[in-house]
Design a protein around this nucleic acid. Structure first.
Length: 563
RNA sequence: GCGCCUGUAGCUCAGUUGGAUAGAGCAACGGACUUCUAAUCCGUAGGCCAGAGGUUCGAAUCCUCUCAGGCGCGCCA
């Protein structure tokens, strides 16, 4: 690999590649036992004195070959240590770890890579262009998005961006449940409020949607259509109300998401599944393969054949379909569109639904591992130390829009990503509004703004960072190197959060990077009397600024020039 | 009753396919602005990783059981 190519790859991968080459040679020579080189692991040690990278291969080989780990380690160490342009030291430690200390020059060169790749630093070919779909939010168009949807939106959108950065071909999609009983109830609810406006007697449906937004929709409908629906047949009027309301709400949802910096590649309508006969097609598909059967007046799907605990109903006794039936058709359509990996972001309360969906995927002829349900746990709001009560049924829920308006889009997105998806989240509205060190969003954005400020000051003095003037030995202090190592690790963070579908890791990384920068800032001067160091550090902070901006952009958060 | 998730510092949480002496933020205490933004930094203190067994060179991480909390177990969506 030519030198210029080598520095484009994350440092950890470079080390792993060098190690793999060395092991390959040593195995060929019979110096060490046979080993599957694809599975070797290089990690960053917990403690700084153990160097920059570490591998446990010697111990693993030893246990398989019944040899002494340290003997194997020594053979590997001697060979690796010859790569003196890469490593300052190669040590054996503890039970048989091999620890690598990468030379400062190698680290400093990472800065060139960052400045060269700019907003593409952190992207990689990890996903090999594999076609992946992330479906999220997918809230019924029966009401505005609430806080829980917001978390799904933030997580789903960030995950899609991460996967894209990691080299997958990603499509994000919103599934619109615009069919079904809930839509009729929506129509009835609106019709009732519509009649109210014209002073007509109207009994509000029992399970109707009680929120104020229904009144607004009815008002808007009355302005658009006058009283013409009053004399229509009930069913026609309901249909008209339903369609009007559905469009109205969906437009609101789209506006909210746009405000939240969430964008979808596809909006997929459930109604379109029926219109295109895809549900029929899927039911036929299952029937032809003997995967469904009639019993007790209903049509059943034999999901138990694929690991589900009981068979599931597709068509009810009353002849109507369950929610599951179109959902299978929908996923069959996803498979037909060529997605190799299908990721559904769901509320955690749907987790009981996962086994049957996996069963369906398998029944449709795909590998069940190509389907992932990412379960998002509950969000609860706290204000002044007190829980904010929320209940969809009573119509007293806090909307996503209200939270965005109150605390801002950036804070909101970050807070939704502060926890692992499968952990419950307490959203502290008072903390979210604090503009201080306690609020991680400002802490991180402040780091970016501080760097911009330094660069403005430098510009006033006629100094501008010029990568070709970077003198590698000018960044020799531990603080400089610590910061470089921190940003050099960014591509690994992106890859690992993509591989494990754990977008929250970006938010933790950002916090660590901001901390590292603030520490650096307080202990070192960027602009000083020393021209060489000044130039080198200007380049360093430009690189840090770039990585902060890149990571923030993955989260859909702004990187302000000043605060 | 069965299944899924969670249990790590006083609080909120990280912990990268099992790695070395378990980390961060907040809260507490003590320090740092004549210096590129103090929306910042440094230091101190804080732990039986819920508990008990097991697997191995090595466990917060994997297996079994117990306890505690949340959720699910519909011909609802």
């Amino acid at each position: 690999m030519p030198e210029t190519e080598r520095i484009r790859v994350p440092m950890k991968e470079q080390i792993a590649a060098l190690l793999r080459n060395t092991l390959h040679e040593l195995i060929a020579q019979g110096a060490i036992p046979e080993y599957d080189l694809e599975t070797i692991s290089v990690s960053v040690p917990a403690r700084k004195e153990f160097g920059d990278f570490s591998t446990n291969v010697a111990m693993i080989m030893a246990s398989q070959a019944k040899k002494k780990p340290r003997d194997i380690a020594q053979t590997i160490q001697e060979r690796m240590a010859r790569l003196s342009d890469v490593f300052d030291r190669v040590d054996i430690a503890g039970p048989g770890f091999i620890n690598f200390t990468v030379s400062p020059l190698m680290w400093v060169r990472v800065l060139n890579t960052i400045l060269e790749k700019k907003d593409r630093f952190g992207t990689s070919a990890f996903g090999r262009g594999k076609k992946v779909q992330v479906e999220f939010v997918s809230a019924n168009p029966t009401g505005p998005l609430h806080v829980g949807h917001g978390r799904g939106a933030a997580v789903g959108d960030t995950l899609a961006r991460i996967l894209k950065a990691a080299g997958f071909k990603v499509e994000s999609e919103y599934y619109i449940n615009d069919v079904g009983n809930q839509m009729n109830i929506l129509g009835l609810s609106v019709l009732s409020r519509y009649r109210e406006i014209f002073g007509k007697d109207s009994s509000f449906p029992e399970n109707g949607y009680k929120g104020d937004y229904i009144r607004k929709i009815a008002q808007s409908l009355s302005e658009a259509r006058g009283d013409e629906l009053l004399c229509r047949e009930e069913s026609d009027a309901v249909t008209a109300c339903r369609e009007f309301a559905s469009d109205f709400i969906l437009n609101g949802i789209k506006e909210d998401l746009a405000l939240f910096n969430v964008h979808f590649d596809q909006w997929f309508s459930e109604a379109a599944l029926y219109r295109d006969h895809k549900v029929e097609h899927t039911l036929d598909f299952l029937k032809e393969r003997g995967l469904s059967y009639e019993a007790e007046g209903a049509l059943w799907f034999r999901t138990t054949g694929f690991g589900d605990e009981k068979d599931r109903v597709l068509r009810k006794q009353d002849g109507s379909l369950t929610y599951f039936a179109p959902d299978i058709a929908y996923h069959q359509d996803k498979l037909e569109r060529g997605f190799k990996q299908i990721i559904d972001v769901w509320g955690a309360d749907h987790h009981g639904y996962v086994p049957r969906m996996k069963a369906a995927i398998e029944a449709l002829g795909a590998d069940k591992d190509c389907f992932h349900a990412l379960l998002i746990q509950l969000v609860s709001l706290v204000r002044e130390g007190q829980p904010v009560s929320m209940s969809t049924r009573s119509g007293e829920f806090v909307t996503l829009r209200e939270i965005i308006d109150e605390v801002g889009k950036d804070v909101c997105r970050y807070f939704f990503m502060m926890r692992r998806s499968d952990a419950q989240l307490v959203f502290d509205l008072d903390l979210a509004k604090k503009k201080s060190e306690e609020n991680p969003v400002y802490y991180i954005q402040y780091a970016h703004a501080r760097i911009c400020s330094i660069l403005r000051n430098a510009a006033e003095q006629g100094l501008s960072p010029e990568p070709s003037l970077l003198e590698e030995d000018a960044l020799s202090t531990g603080d400089d190197l610590d910061l470089i190592k921190m940003i050099a690790g960014y591509p690994d963070v992106v890859v690992s959060s993509a591989a494990d579908l754990e977008p929250h890791r970006i938010s933790f990384y950002l916090l660590e990077l901001a901390t590292a920068f603030h520490r650096f800032y307080n202990r070192n001067r960027v602009i000083s009397d020393d021209g060489r160091v000044t130039m080198a550090r200007l380049i360093l902070v430009v690189a840090v600024k770039q990585v902060l901006a890149n990571a923030l952009s993955l989260m859909g958060i702004e990187a302000p020039e000043s605060m």
